[in-house]
Amino acid sequence: MTGTLWLAWRQQRLLILTAALLVTALTVWVALGRADLIEAISGYDLSQCKGWNGECPPETYGAMTESNGGIRLLGAIGLALPAAIGMFWGAPLIGRELESGTIKVVLTQDSGVRSWFAARFGLAALCAVTVSTAVAALIAWWWAPISNMYDGVYWHDPYILNASGPSAVAGALFALAAGTAIGLLVRRTLPAMGATLAVVLAVAAVLTYFRRDFVTPVDRITPGMQPKRLIGSAWSAGYRYLTPDGAQHPLENCLFSGEQLRACMDGHGFVGRVHKVYPSSDFWTFQGIDTTVYLLLALALVALTTVRLRGRRLG
């Protein structure tokens, strides 16, 4: 194992160095950006701007809003990170060895395929976890002072929901496992990188699109024509109309406002409105779903890779 670990280190040290530089640079940037933010918002009462209350004083809003661009950019980097790890770390991990034939040198040494794969995937996974944890933590750290503030970055924005928290780390692991498995199957680095990008983006898109189906939103019911409750920092999942029997009906039945709406509601026998929302505590529910799905996929891909490697089609 020590031998294969040395080889893994020797082959990945350039990537590790690059990743370390990237994390260091981001840390410096975030530290500076966050210090600026703290200074800018000191002396303001931010509680007025929590959520989407619409009563945020312009000066307070102005003090916070400066940092939003940086947080979004950092979030975008966090969003791209799994794909980058999958493409540049995962796809060549076995793919390049197959392409160049060097796998034939390595796997005919005393140490076997298990130790070789465990060492190189283990090291890559450790680095992927470290880097993605660092970036996710940086995002959360910068965002925390102005989290879910008026017109700012909300917990359900992909910059936060997808790029921070445990699911971001699980996503990086999944992308690494996907790149590794695809490299093994495709046996060529460049096509494997392309395929990895496609797969990682597709899974992220599917998760983003479908994960809400697994979580039931909270119903906020306002009887009759009463003004709706402000959304706060919850995530809107749409409106419904309510009939006395408790049944909910699509918004499309009455797409009006004012008197027209009243007439329409009366016509349909609607007695109230339902605002379906995900409260901010659902952040952890969504994170849980993403993390579970990513980890299960990663596990399945590592299992597939191991089986394929032991099936020996390496010549």
Binding site: I103, K104, L107, T108, G311, R312, R313, L314, G315
Partner: peptide, 8 residues
Amino acid sequence: HLMTGLLR
């Protein structure tokens, strides 16, 4: 490749 076990 069969002799080296790279192939089964």
